[in-house]
Design a protein around this nucleic acid. Structure first.
Lengths: 207, 207
DNA sequence: AAATATAAAAATGTATACATTTTTATATTT
DNA sequence: AAATATAAAAATGTATACATTTTTATATTT
């Protein structure tokens, strides 16, 4: 069923499932070659995580992208990820920071789609957050980042953002390495804030 | 199915479903007089919201209470509810504040269980937050408060907390009425912090 | 003709039956 | 006797069939 969820998410992202019109369990069960039971399970899960919303009293649909939601998601990320990094700081060994650097190098690759870039970006952040040992907080942050993925299905923003974001990661890691805790936390906050503002501005201009 | 979820939550709270040992879909379906399908649906939902956790590779169980989780929940509440109230402040008319005051009066009733008190407490907070018009943020905050309910199934803490909490609500509302925004936000933060610390201290001493 | 009421169709929700996976008990090996 | 391998039992996962609810199309009323 996890696989089915991923397929649905992929088809939501690539536009194979149209926004705004109801999805029928039967159609989906034909499309993915399973019965309606796993389809129902997957729909319930995706509804919980904001990938689908109810359509009337029966049925669900892919929601429209919406800048207010994006703003909320980034505001929550800002508040919670700063907390999480704060808990992680005392446990961030050079080994962990090394793993983060390796991921950041992969972000160099210019062929990455925005979606792949988003995945690596989360992998990097998650590497830092994991050592916080705060599963409840981590879990909420993970869900928020997964929800943000809904907004990464298409290219947006200025082209040079790639380098900006990558440099920001480098700066963040070096602040942590040199034990400048408060500055690292403020820097992370700014990093998320900038990414959020770029997305929100883009969404506002689209409509 | 929503009814089934509520029944399960109630039975988790009152201890009818034991912690730590696996719950079987079959047993639950007999207990609640439904087939395994709605039981499965309910279990999935409760797992998503922290009321159940997986037990090995097959099965779920009621998780033990755990002070680190409680601490995380209250830290998240602190950060996010302050944001939410901030968005709500410009829209908080006297009518809305009046509704909040009416709920606070009900908290006078000394016969309330901690659980009923928790419900009214959330009703009050939700009244203020609703006018923020931030459904995504509101939804996360609502889920956090629902998760906190898991920790309210039993009596704890000093007996005079009732009055303390109620006075804090009064103070918060009066700060809002007199348009002292920053102080209102800081006061809310403290209000949640105190409640969280009380719970966490209690949980730490229990074990 | 617009608004409401009724009936048919189509959707979702749930029960039962079967398939697959996981767990537990037993047998075998070292 | 402890550790591993095997077989039986019991669990979860999924397909199909039926029940209930919702939607849509048609008929009726004002």
């Amino acid at each position: 069923m996890l696989e089915l969820i991923e397929q649905l998410k992929a088809d939501i992202l690539n536009g194979a499932l149209p926004r705004g019109c109801p999805l029928r369990q039967q159609e989906l069960s034909v499309r993915y070659n399973v019965s309606r039971i796993p389809v129902r399970d997957a729909i319930a899960q995706l509804k919980n995580q904001g990938w689908l919303v109810t359509h009337g009293k029966a049925g669900v649909m892919v929601p429209e992208l919406n800048w207010r939601e994006a703003e909320d998601l980034y505001q929550m990320r800002m508040a919670l990820e700063v907390q999480l990094l704060g808990h992680a700081l005392p446990n961030l060994t050079h080994e962990v920071l090394g793993r983060a650097k390796d991921i950041n190098l992969q972000l160099n690759n210019p062929c990455l789609t925005l979606l792949e870039r988003g995945q690596l970006n989360w992998d990097l952040h998650a590497t830092l957050y994991e050592v916080a040992n705060r599963p409840t907080l981590f879990n909420v942050v993970a869900i928020l980042n997964e929800q943000v993925r809904r907004y990464m299905g298409f290219q947006y923003g200025p082209l040079n953002y790639r380098d900006t974001s990558q440099n920001e990661h480098e700066k963040l890691i070096s602040l942590i390495e040199s034990d400048q805790k408060d500055q690292a936390l403020r820097y992370l906050k700014g990093h998320i804030e900038v990414a959020g503002r770029m997305l929100v501005d883009y969404l506002k201009n689209e409509n």
